[in-house]
Design a protein around this nucleic acid. Structure first.
Lengths: 168, 168
DNA sequence: AGCTCATGCTTCGAATTCGAAGCAACAATG
DNA sequence: CATTGTTGCTTCGAATTCGAAGCATGAGCT
């Protein structure tokens, strides 16, 4: 129904901007903390955390990339760095010769454990200290709904209206 | 008082992750759309949009950078690109000789107007189609509160625990 | 005025990011 | 099993990002 081009109302616009600003500020804060306390970027921490949570501490590259919303080439790069530091290992998958399985090492787990408390502290201070219990529940429910909706909806084909060849 | 290191409970953790994932997915989607329809990055669009909203379509560099949560050097770079494309102008401030005032041009406004409908469409489809009116109000209120709280709280000093010299 | 510190922007170099192209291993045909 | 298309990862080049350092102006003293 009301789909095509109707502008967002003020409340929607405000919510959208607030969402992006909050996540951006939060990410910067967290990133700074991780860098200072564990020499990890936000992305690297995400990768390690995701692995730590995974069944055996292992995941295929692609699944990992999807999990952290990240490009494959970018993951290859970061995986290289993390492997060099001994935080993860990469080994070919037994069943499928072309896919690589990434696994956290004990050192990696230890590092995550080391930075996690402070990380959580930052998140709490910035994000949750201003929320009542009820707000939290609401936020949690709403975002959960949005997320699953997003995972459903296709990426949009992006109608090519103005296609400049890019001023190289 | 419960401050120091107590872990976030499951609901908090879920909300945090959902927030970051949602904003990340949303940003990627919006970015792809902007690039395809106006050859703009998300950051560039933010800059233009912010200027379009500003009193006279003009802002000082620093205020603009703060507004979009962006580094100053990064803004200098992007401002250079946008200026080259004739979407903005840069001129020294009359009162303070060292600050630069950025202003959207008519071309810039036109471009924003051109991509805005599609942009809004993407946001609506991804973010708002899954929300009831009540959810929207709640989300808007909550995020607004969080945002103002964030603007208050200092950036955290980031206790230097492990400071490796960076494997250059 | 003369000094010193703060502020605003840019330049610089290093790190990170992405998509496109390249390569190998699978899968689905015939 | 040969042929063709798909999938998973890496390499490559170009663009973007950031912080530190550099410069110039402004502000607050004495």
């Amino acid at each position: 129904m009301s789909h095509e081009t109707a502008p967002l109302d003020a409340e929607q616009l405000g919510a959208y901007f607030a969402l992006m600003e909050v996540s951006s500020l939060l990410q910067h804060a967290v990133d700074a903390h991780l860098r200072a306390n564990g020499d990890l970027s936000y992305v690297q921490f995400q990768i390690l955390a995701r692995l730590t949570d995974a069944p055996e501490g292992r995941l295929r590259m692609t699944d990992l990339a999807d999990g952290v919303v990240y490009s494959r080439s970018g993951l290859t790069y970061q995986a290289g760095l993390l492997e060099k530091r001994g935080l993860i290992t990469r080994s070919p998958a037994p069943d499928d010769e072309r896919s690589i399985v990434v696994a956290v090492t004990d050192v990696g787990r230890a590092l995550v454990a080391q930075v996690l408390p402070g990380h959580i502290d930052v998140v709490r201070r910035l994000l949750f200290d201003s929320l009542e219990r009820a707000d939290l529940s609401a936020l949690s429910g709403i975002l959960g709904r949005v997320r699953s909706h997003m995972r459903t909806a296709p990426p949009r084909s992006a109608k090519p209206r103005a296609n400049r060849t890019r001023a190289s």
